[in-house]
Design a protein around this nucleic acid. Structure first.
Lengths: 138, 138
DNA sequence: AGCGAAATGCAAATGCTTCTCAATCTTGAT
DNA sequence: ATCAAGATTGAGAAGCATTTGCATTTCGCT
Protein backbone atom coordinates (compact mmCIF):
# COMPACT_ATOMS: atom_id res chain seq x y z
CA UNK A 1 0.00 0.00 0.00
CA UNK A 2 2.02 2.96 1.20
CA UNK A 3 5.04 1.85 -0.70
CA UNK A 4 8.28 3.88 -0.78
CA UNK A 5 8.72 2.71 -4.33
CA UNK A 6 11.56 4.04 -6.42
CA UNK A 7 9.19 4.23 -9.34
CA UNK A 8 6.25 6.02 -7.84
CA UNK A 9 3.49 7.52 -9.89
CA UNK A 10 5.17 10.87 -9.29
CA UNK A 11 8.45 9.66 -10.74
CA UNK A 12 6.65 8.33 -13.75
CA UNK A 13 4.69 11.52 -14.31
CA UNK A 14 7.97 13.42 -14.15
CA UNK A 15 9.17 11.11 -16.92
CA UNK A 16 6.24 12.19 -19.07
CA UNK A 17 4.19 9.08 -18.37
CA UNK A 18 0.55 9.96 -17.84
CA UNK A 19 -1.10 8.33 -14.89
CA UNK A 20 -4.30 6.71 -16.00
CA UNK A 21 -6.73 4.50 -14.19
CA UNK A 22 -5.56 1.50 -16.19
CA UNK A 23 -1.92 2.15 -15.55
CA UNK A 24 -2.55 2.45 -11.84
CA UNK A 25 -4.29 -0.90 -11.88
CA UNK A 26 -1.38 -2.50 -13.71
CA UNK A 27 1.18 -0.93 -11.40
CA UNK A 28 -0.82 -2.16 -8.45
CA UNK A 29 -0.78 -5.70 -9.80
CA UNK A 30 2.97 -5.56 -10.27
CA UNK A 31 3.54 -4.26 -6.77
CA UNK A 32 1.45 -7.02 -5.25
CA UNK A 33 2.88 -9.79 -7.39
CA UNK A 34 5.76 -11.93 -6.28
CA UNK A 35 5.44 -14.57 -8.96
CA UNK A 36 6.68 -12.98 -12.19
CA UNK A 37 3.25 -12.98 -13.86
CA UNK A 38 2.63 -13.18 -17.58
CA UNK A 39 0.78 -10.51 -19.53
CA UNK A 40 -2.38 -12.56 -19.37
CA UNK A 41 -2.15 -12.89 -15.58
CA UNK A 42 -1.59 -9.18 -15.26
CA UNK A 43 -4.67 -8.52 -17.36
CA UNK A 44 -6.83 -10.79 -15.21
CA UNK A 45 -5.61 -9.28 -11.96
CA UNK A 46 -5.79 -5.69 -13.17
CA UNK A 47 -9.41 -6.22 -14.19
CA UNK A 48 -10.29 -7.04 -10.61
CA UNK A 49 -9.44 -3.46 -9.77
CA UNK A 50 -10.57 -1.94 -13.05
CA UNK A 51 -12.65 -4.12 -15.38
CA UNK A 52 -12.09 -1.76 -18.27
CA UNK A 53 -8.43 -2.70 -18.72
CA UNK A 54 -7.81 -4.28 -22.08
CA UNK A 55 -5.15 -6.65 -23.32
CA UNK A 56 -3.74 -4.00 -25.63
CA UNK A 57 -3.30 -1.62 -22.74
CA UNK A 58 -1.52 -4.21 -20.66
CA UNK A 59 1.04 -4.76 -23.40
CA UNK A 60 1.36 -1.07 -24.16
CA UNK A 61 1.76 -0.17 -20.51
CA UNK A 62 4.30 -2.88 -19.86
CA UNK A 63 6.33 -1.64 -22.82
CA UNK A 64 6.21 1.92 -21.53
CA UNK A 65 7.12 0.90 -18.00
CA UNK A 66 9.96 -1.20 -19.33
CA UNK A 67 11.33 1.75 -21.25
CA UNK A 68 10.99 3.89 -18.14
CA UNK A 69 13.01 1.34 -16.21
CA UNK A 70 10.13 0.51 -13.89
CA UNK A 71 9.49 -2.96 -15.19
CA UNK A 72 11.73 -5.79 -16.23
CA UNK A 73 10.63 -8.20 -18.93
CA UNK A 74 11.89 -11.76 -18.71
CA UNK A 75 11.70 -14.19 -21.59
CA UNK A 76 12.25 -17.52 -19.94
CA UNK A 77 12.09 -20.75 -21.92
CA UNK A 78 8.63 -21.90 -22.74
CA UNK A 79 5.62 -19.64 -23.20
CA UNK A 80 5.42 -15.86 -23.16
CA UNK A 81 7.24 -13.14 -21.27
CA UNK A 82 7.03 -12.74 -17.50
CA UNK A 83 7.23 -9.40 -15.76
CA UNK A 84 8.41 -7.93 -12.48
CA UNK A 85 9.08 -4.52 -10.99
CA UNK A 86 12.67 -3.47 -11.61
CA UNK A 87 13.03 -1.46 -8.46
CA UNK A 88 14.99 -3.94 -6.45
CA UNK A 89 18.63 -4.93 -6.87
CA UNK A 90 19.65 -6.55 -10.11
CA UNK A 91 19.31 -10.31 -9.97
CA UNK A 92 19.27 -13.41 -12.12
CA UNK A 93 16.75 -16.24 -12.10
CA UNK A 94 16.56 -19.91 -11.33
CA UNK A 95 13.47 -21.53 -12.81
CA UNK A 96 12.04 -24.66 -11.23
CA UNK A 97 11.38 -27.02 -14.14
CA UNK A 98 8.71 -28.89 -12.20
CA UNK A 99 6.66 -26.01 -10.88
CA UNK A 100 7.63 -22.98 -12.94
CA UNK A 101 8.47 -21.15 -9.73
CA UNK A 102 11.13 -18.51 -10.18
CA UNK A 103 13.84 -18.02 -7.57
CA UNK A 104 15.97 -14.91 -7.67
CA UNK A 105 19.67 -14.79 -6.89
CA UNK A 106 22.62 -12.51 -7.31
CA UNK A 107 26.30 -13.33 -7.66
CA UNK A 108 28.81 -10.50 -7.82
CA UNK A 109 31.50 -13.04 -8.59
CA UNK A 110 29.71 -14.26 -11.69
CA UNK A 111 29.12 -10.71 -12.83
CA UNK A 112 32.79 -10.03 -12.32
CA UNK A 113 33.77 -13.04 -14.39
CA UNK A 114 31.38 -12.03 -17.14
CA UNK A 115 33.01 -8.63 -17.39
CA UNK A 116 36.45 -10.20 -17.52
CA UNK A 117 35.48 -12.61 -20.25
CA UNK A 118 33.89 -9.88 -22.32
CA UNK A 119 36.98 -7.72 -21.91
CA UNK A 120 39.18 -10.57 -23.13
CA UNK A 121 37.00 -10.84 -26.21
CA UNK A 122 37.23 -7.10 -26.76
CA UNK A 123 33.70 -6.21 -25.67
CA UNK A 124 31.94 -4.06 -23.12
CA UNK A 125 28.84 -5.70 -21.68
CA UNK A 126 25.68 -3.68 -21.84
CA UNK A 127 23.45 -6.28 -20.25
CA UNK A 128 23.29 -9.97 -19.72
CA UNK A 129 20.93 -12.76 -19.12
CA UNK A 130 21.59 -15.67 -16.84
CA UNK A 131 18.96 -18.30 -16.20
CA UNK A 132 19.38 -21.59 -14.42
CA UNK A 133 16.84 -24.33 -15.07
CA UNK A 134 16.72 -27.07 -12.48
CA UNK A 135 14.83 -29.21 -10.02
CA UNK A 136 14.75 -29.35 -6.25
CA UNK A 137 17.55 -31.58 -5.03
CA UNK A 138 16.38 -34.37 -2.76
CA UNK B 1 32.52 -32.77 -46.22
CA UNK B 2 34.12 -35.89 -44.76
CA UNK B 3 33.37 -34.80 -41.28
CA UNK B 4 34.17 -36.98 -38.27
CA UNK B 5 31.01 -35.67 -36.74
CA UNK B 6 29.70 -37.03 -33.48
CA UNK B 7 26.23 -36.89 -34.93
CA UNK B 8 26.70 -38.56 -38.26
CA UNK B 9 23.84 -39.79 -40.35
CA UNK B 10 24.69 -43.26 -39.07
CA UNK B 11 24.33 -42.18 -35.46
CA UNK B 12 21.05 -40.56 -36.24
CA UNK B 13 19.73 -43.60 -38.07
CA UNK B 14 20.69 -45.69 -35.05
CA UNK B 15 18.58 -43.30 -33.00
CA UNK B 16 15.59 -44.09 -35.17
CA UNK B 17 15.87 -40.92 -37.22
CA UNK B 18 15.20 -41.62 -40.87
CA UNK B 19 17.64 -40.06 -43.27
CA UNK B 20 15.73 -38.25 -45.93
CA UNK B 21 16.88 -36.02 -48.74
CA UNK B 22 15.56 -32.99 -46.91
CA UNK B 23 17.21 -33.86 -43.65
CA UNK B 24 20.54 -34.33 -45.38
CA UNK B 25 20.22 -30.90 -46.92
CA UNK B 26 19.44 -29.35 -43.53
CA UNK B 27 22.30 -31.17 -41.84
CA UNK B 28 24.61 -29.98 -44.59
CA UNK B 29 23.56 -26.40 -44.03
CA UNK B 30 24.21 -26.68 -40.32
CA UNK B 31 27.64 -28.20 -40.87
CA UNK B 32 28.65 -25.43 -43.21
CA UNK B 33 27.22 -22.64 -41.11
CA UNK B 34 29.27 -20.71 -38.63
CA UNK B 35 26.80 -17.90 -38.07
CA UNK B 36 23.99 -19.36 -35.96
CA UNK B 37 21.37 -19.12 -38.73
CA UNK B 38 17.65 -18.68 -38.22
CA UNK B 39 15.07 -21.15 -39.47
CA UNK B 40 14.43 -18.96 -42.48
CA UNK B 41 18.13 -18.84 -43.38
CA UNK B 42 18.35 -22.59 -43.06
CA UNK B 43 15.40 -22.99 -45.39
CA UNK B 44 16.96 -20.75 -48.01
CA UNK B 45 20.31 -22.48 -47.87
CA UNK B 46 18.87 -25.98 -47.79
CA UNK B 47 16.86 -25.24 -50.91
CA UNK B 48 20.06 -24.57 -52.81
CA UNK B 49 20.86 -28.22 -52.36
CA UNK B 50 17.31 -29.51 -52.51
CA UNK B 51 14.60 -27.12 -53.71
CA UNK B 52 11.86 -29.36 -52.40
CA UNK B 53 12.58 -28.54 -48.75
CA UNK B 54 9.67 -26.80 -47.09
CA UNK B 55 9.44 -24.49 -44.14
CA UNK B 56 7.47 -27.05 -42.16
CA UNK B 57 10.17 -29.64 -42.69
CA UNK B 58 12.87 -27.27 -41.54
CA UNK B 59 11.05 -26.68 -38.28
CA UNK B 60 10.16 -30.33 -37.84
CA UNK B 61 13.70 -31.45 -38.58
CA UNK B 62 15.27 -28.92 -36.27
CA UNK B 63 12.96 -30.07 -33.50
CA UNK B 64 13.93 -33.70 -34.10
CA UNK B 65 17.63 -32.93 -34.26
CA UNK B 66 17.33 -30.90 -31.11
CA UNK B 67 15.71 -33.79 -29.32
CA UNK B 68 18.44 -36.10 -30.63
CA UNK B 69 21.04 -33.76 -29.21
CA UNK B 70 22.46 -32.91 -32.61
CA UNK B 71 21.26 -29.34 -32.72
CA UNK B 72 21.12 -26.58 -30.18
CA UNK B 73 18.39 -23.97 -30.34
CA UNK B 74 19.22 -20.49 -29.09
CA UNK B 75 16.57 -17.90 -28.35
CA UNK B 76 18.53 -14.71 -28.17
CA UNK B 77 16.81 -11.38 -27.61
CA UNK B 78 15.07 -9.98 -30.63
CA UNK B 79 13.65 -12.04 -33.48
CA UNK B 80 13.37 -15.80 -33.83
CA UNK B 81 15.51 -18.71 -32.73
CA UNK B 82 19.01 -19.32 -34.05
CA UNK B 83 20.50 -22.77 -34.48
CA UNK B 84 23.86 -24.47 -34.38
CA UNK B 85 25.25 -27.98 -34.32
CA UNK B 86 25.67 -29.19 -30.77
CA UNK B 87 28.66 -31.37 -31.44
CA UNK B 88 31.32 -29.13 -30.05
CA UNK B 89 32.03 -28.33 -26.41
CA UNK B 90 29.33 -26.62 -24.44
CA UNK B 91 29.60 -22.87 -24.63
CA UNK B 92 27.75 -19.66 -23.92
CA UNK B 93 27.23 -16.68 -26.20
CA UNK B 94 28.18 -13.04 -26.44
CA UNK B 95 25.99 -11.16 -28.90
CA UNK B 96 27.33 -8.02 -30.58
CA UNK B 97 24.52 -5.48 -30.25
CA UNK B 98 25.74 -3.56 -33.28
CA UNK B 99 26.21 -6.37 -35.75
CA UNK B 100 24.28 -9.34 -34.38
CA UNK B 101 27.47 -11.39 -34.59
CA UNK B 102 27.61 -14.18 -32.02
CA UNK B 103 30.85 -14.97 -30.22
CA UNK B 104 31.15 -18.20 -28.30
CA UNK B 105 32.93 -18.57 -25.00
CA UNK B 106 33.24 -21.00 -22.15
CA UNK B 107 34.01 -20.41 -18.50
CA UNK B 108 34.40 -23.38 -16.18
CA UNK B 109 34.56 -20.97 -13.26
CA UNK B 110 31.18 -19.50 -14.05
CA UNK B 111 29.69 -22.96 -14.45
CA UNK B 112 31.18 -23.90 -11.12
CA UNK B 113 29.67 -20.87 -9.44
CA UNK B 114 26.30 -21.59 -10.99
CA UNK B 115 26.31 -25.07 -9.53
CA UNK B 116 27.26 -23.73 -6.12
CA UNK B 117 24.52 -21.14 -6.16
CA UNK B 118 21.92 -23.66 -7.21
CA UNK B 119 23.04 -26.03 -4.50
CA UNK B 120 22.68 -23.30 -1.89
CA UNK B 121 19.14 -22.73 -3.08
CA UNK B 122 18.42 -26.43 -2.91
CA UNK B 123 18.42 -27.14 -6.62
CA UNK B 124 20.23 -29.28 -9.17
CA UNK B 125 20.83 -27.51 -12.44
CA UNK B 126 19.64 -29.30 -15.53
CA UNK B 127 20.69 -26.62 -17.99
CA UNK B 128 21.41 -22.95 -18.07
CA UNK B 129 21.46 -20.03 -20.39
CA UNK B 130 24.04 -17.30 -20.24
CA UNK B 131 24.07 -14.55 -22.81
CA UNK B 132 26.14 -11.39 -22.77
CA UNK B 133 24.98 -8.46 -24.89
CA UNK B 134 27.62 -5.86 -25.62
CA UNK B 135 29.59 -3.75 -28.04
CA UNK B 136 33.18 -3.82 -29.17
CA UNK B 137 35.30 -1.82 -26.76
CA UNK B 138 37.30 0.94 -28.40
C1' DA C 1 9.99 -55.26 -55.78
C1' DG C 2 6.54 -54.55 -52.03
C1' DC C 3 4.69 -52.87 -47.42
C1' DG C 4 3.70 -50.26 -43.48
C1' DA C 5 5.20 -46.62 -40.96
C1' DA C 6 7.26 -42.32 -41.01
C1' DA C 7 8.17 -37.93 -43.38
C1' DT C 8 6.77 -34.28 -46.50
C1' DG C 9 4.43 -30.11 -48.68
C1' DC C 10 0.87 -27.18 -48.51
C1' DA C 11 -2.04 -24.37 -46.25
C1' DA C 12 -4.60 -23.40 -42.32
C1' DA C 13 -4.14 -22.70 -37.46
C1' DT C 14 -1.71 -21.17 -33.25
C1' DG C 15 -0.05 -18.19 -29.54
C1' DC C 16 1.79 -14.14 -28.19
C1' DT C 17 2.31 -9.49 -29.20
C1' DT C 18 1.58 -5.20 -31.85
C1' DC C 19 -1.04 -2.05 -34.52
C1' DT C 20 -5.18 0.78 -36.41
C1' DC C 21 -8.58 4.02 -35.51
C1' DA C 22 -12.41 6.36 -33.61
C1' DA C 23 -13.78 7.64 -29.07
C1' DT C 24 -12.30 9.04 -24.48
C1' DC C 25 -9.32 10.64 -21.02
C1' DT C 26 -5.16 13.66 -18.77
C1' DT C 27 -2.87 17.47 -18.12
C1' DG C 28 -1.22 22.17 -18.19
C1' DA C 29 -2.94 26.65 -19.09
C1' DT C 30 -6.66 29.83 -18.56
C1' DA D 1 -13.50 24.96 -12.61
C1' DT D 2 -12.99 24.86 -17.68
C1' DC D 3 -10.73 24.02 -22.08
C1' DA D 4 -8.09 22.67 -25.85
C1' DA D 5 -4.44 19.67 -27.53
C1' DG D 6 -2.46 15.69 -27.43
C1' DA D 7 -1.96 11.24 -25.26
C1' DT D 8 -4.35 6.94 -24.14
C1' DT D 9 -7.81 3.46 -24.59
C1' DG D 10 -10.81 -0.66 -26.22
C1' DA D 11 -11.94 -3.71 -29.75
C1' DG D 12 -10.66 -6.12 -33.22
C1' DA D 13 -7.59 -6.80 -37.10
C1' DA D 14 -2.92 -7.78 -38.27
C1' DG D 15 1.89 -9.66 -37.67
C1' DC D 16 5.36 -13.02 -37.02
C1' DA D 17 7.51 -17.15 -35.91
C1' DT D 18 6.28 -21.60 -35.28
C1' DT D 19 3.15 -25.69 -35.31
C1' DT D 20 -0.29 -28.75 -37.04
C1' DG D 21 -3.81 -31.53 -40.09
C1' DC D 22 -4.11 -34.21 -43.90
C1' DA D 23 -3.44 -36.41 -48.34
C1' DT D 24 0.58 -37.95 -50.75
C1' DT D 25 5.31 -39.49 -51.10
C1' DT D 26 9.37 -41.73 -49.36
C1' DC D 27 12.26 -44.58 -46.40
C1' DG D 28 13.97 -48.83 -44.77
C1' DC D 29 13.32 -53.52 -44.07
C1' DT D 30 11.89 -58.04 -45.99
Amino acid sequence: MSNANTHSELDLRADGVRITRQRLAILHVLREASDHPRAEDILTRARQQDPSVSQATVYRTLAILEKAGTVQRNEFDGAGARFELADRQHHDHLIDLDTGVVVEFHSPRIEQLQAEIAAELGYDIERHRLELYGRKST
